[in-house]
Design a binder for these strands. Structure first.
Lengths: 228, 228
DNA sequence: GTAGGCCAACCTACCGGTCGGTCGGTTACC
DNA sequence: GGTAACCGACCGACCGGTAGGTTGGCCTAC
C-alpha cells in the first residue's frame, strides 16, 4: 500500500484519473472543481469515478502525494548527497525552479496553492514531507555557514527566502513570457547566491583562506536583456 | 462608482461587512466560504447581506480593492519618493513584510492567495494595480544598478525574487513562531541586499576535507491506509 | 406636536440548480 | 461464476441569489 491509499503497481487508469483531476484542480482550484466535472473529464459518470477513489479530499491527498514524489525524485534525491553544501543549494534551487515552471507539474502547483485545504492525517502527512524539505535547506545553509562558504545568516530566514523566491514563481510565470525558465533559474541562483553588492573586483583572497576555487560566487549570467 | 462596483464614501456598516467577510474568506478560502456563513458572521440573514452587496464576486473585489488601498498607503506612498533607489528598496521590503505579517491584513492575504479567482473587469483592475507595483520595483532596481549601488542584475528577476521572498511569508508565518516579524524583516533585508558572499575581511573557508555528513533525511511514516 | 411620507435596513420564505456521495444494478472479461 | 469496472437514478444538504413584506428612524407640513 502506498500512502495515497491505493495498492501499488496497478492502476494505469488511476494515474490517468489523478492527472486529469490535477489538471482541473490546478485550473479552477480545489473547492471550485466539482466531482461532476472531474468525472466528465475522465469520460465517466460520478459513480464510476467513485469506484476508484474514496472521497474528494482523498483524491486531493493522492494528487499532492504524487506531487511530492515527483519533487523528491527530481529535486531532493538528485542533490542531497552532494558533498559541497553551497553547490548543493545552488543546484537545488535550479532544479526546484525548473520543476515549478515545467508544465507537467500541475500536482506541484496544487501542493503550493492548496497549502491549507487538506485536513487531519492527510494534511499532517503532506506537511511532514514539506517540513523535511525545509529542514534539509536549513541544515544545508547552516553547513555552508559552518564551512565558511557563505556569510553567517539565520538558516531559517535563508531557507524561507530561498523557498519564497522559488515557489512564488507559480503565481506569475507564463511559458510565453519574456524570460525563459532557464533564464529565471540562472538569474535567481545568481542573485540569491551572488548577492547584490557591487563586486569588489576579485583581488581579495582574504588574510589566510586562499582556496583558489572556493569562490565561484559572483560569476556569469548574461541576462539583463530587457526593459528599463 | 469605483471599478469595485460600489458608490464611494459610504458606510461604516459596509466596512464592517468587508472586514468580517475578509476574516472568513482568509480562513476558508473564497470558494470554501458561503454567503450564508458571511451573513451569519455579520449577524444578518443572507437577504440582509445582499442589501449591501451586489454579488459574492463583487464582495471579493471590494475586499481586494481595500487591501490594495492599505498596501499602497502603508508601503508604496511611504517609500516612492525616497531619492536613493537602494534605500527605497530596502525600506519597501521592510514595510511590505510587516504588512503581510500584521494580523490586520486579512485583505492582503486574500489578494495574495486568491490571485486567480476574480474574472473580468474586477480582475483586470486588481491586476493593473499589482503590475504597477512590479514596475515600480523594476524601475527602482534598474535605477540602483544605473547609480552603481548594486550589481548589474535583471530588474525583472530581481523584482520577482524580492516579491517571492516577501509575499510567500503569508504561507508559513505564525505570530507565535520562533521568529518575530521584525526579525524576519531585518533578516530578509540583510540577506537580500547584503548577499551571501563571505565578507572580505572575514577569514576564508576552514578545513575542507571534512565530510559534511549531509542533511540526513529522516523518513516520513506513510499513513492513511486505503480503500480497496 | 404630531400625522404622514419615505427609505434604508433588515426579515421570512423561497427559487432553480448543484454539491459530495451512494445504491442497486449491468456488463465484460478472466 | 467471480469480480473489477462502470452506469442511471437518486439522496439530503446546501449553493448564490431574489421576491416581497416589515420595521424603525428621520424629515417635513401643518
Amino acid at each position: 500500500m502506498s500512502p495515497t491509499g491505493r495498492k501499488d503497481g496497478e492502476g494505469e487508469r488511476y494515474r490517468a484519473i489523478l492527472e486529469t483531476a490535477a489538471r482541473l484542480i490546478c485550473e479552477r482550484g480545489y473547492e471550485g472543481t466539482s466531482m461532476q466535472e472531474v468525472a466528465a473529464a475522465c469520460r465517466m459518470t460520478k459513480a464510476g469515478l467513485y469506484h476508484h477513489i474514496q472521497s474528494k479530499e482523498q483524491l486531493l491527498a493522492a494528487i499532492m502525494s504524487f506531487g511530492m514524489d515527483m519533487f523528491e525524485q527530481q529535486v531532493l534525491v538528485q542533490v542531497r548527497d552532494m558533498p559541497d553544501a553551497l553547490e548543493r543549494l545552488r543546484e537545488c534551487m535550479r532544479r526546484n525552479i525548473l520543476l515549478v515552471t515545467r508544465d507537467l507539474s500541475k500536482e506541484v502547483t496544487i501542493i503550493l496553492h492548496e497549502h491549507a485545504t487538506l485536513h487531519g492525517e492527510a494534511r499532517d502527512y503532506i506537511d511532514g514531507r514539506k517540513k523535511r524539505y525545509v529542514r534539509f535547506l536549513e541544515t544545508s545553509f547552516a553547513e555552508a555557514v559552518r564551512e565558511g562558504r557563505i556569510r553567517a545568516v539565520d538558516p531559517t530566514v535563508a531557507a524561507f527566502s530561498f523557498l519564497g523566491q522559488v515557489l512564488w514563481i507559480y503565481k506569475w510565470y507564463r511559458p510565453d513570457g519574456r524570460l525563459t525558465d532557464e533564464q529565471i533559474a540562472d538569474g535567481m541562483v545568481d542573485l540569491f547566491f551572488g548577492g547584490l553588492a557591487v563586486a569588489e573586483r576579485q583581488s581579495a583572497p582574504g588574510p589566510r583562506g586562499q582556496e583558489p576555487e572556493a569562490a565561484p560566487l559572483t560569476p556569469v549570467v548574461p541576462l539583463f536583456a530587457g526593459k528599463p
